[in-house]
Amino acid sequence: MANLIFNITLYHYLILALILFVIGFIGVILVKNIIKVLICAEFMLTAVNINFIAFSAFAENNLIGFVFAIFTVAIGAIELAIALAIFYLMYRNKKSVDINDYKELMG
């Protein structure tokens, strides 16, 4: 048990990434404010990042995970910029950050 607490293994990082991913996912679904939703989406992306880097760090001389994590970060930033632009264009019409106000279907 002490071994598990004081020796940080691969699994610690994986479990951390899992928890961050799940909390980000719950946040995406259950949050009312659009900007908070986007923030929680970024959490999910960083959790995946942690996963990649943990695997690559614990593999022997295999640095693919580090490289791919860089790409992931870049893509994430781009996508966030586009999302915020779209959000602002929608906001101009509705003047509300509540995601339930953007619902046009009756359900």
């Binding site: 996912f25 995406v28 679904i29 995601i99 953007y102 619902k103 279907l105 009756m106 359900g107």
Partner: peptide, 17 residues
């Protein structure tokens, strides 16, 4: 089916997840 078409993206995401 009609109740599933809410127009709220979060529920769509929830269903697919």
């Amino acid at each position: 089916n009609s109740k599933m078409q809410t127009g709220v993206i979060q529920s769509y995401f929830a269903y697919s997840f």
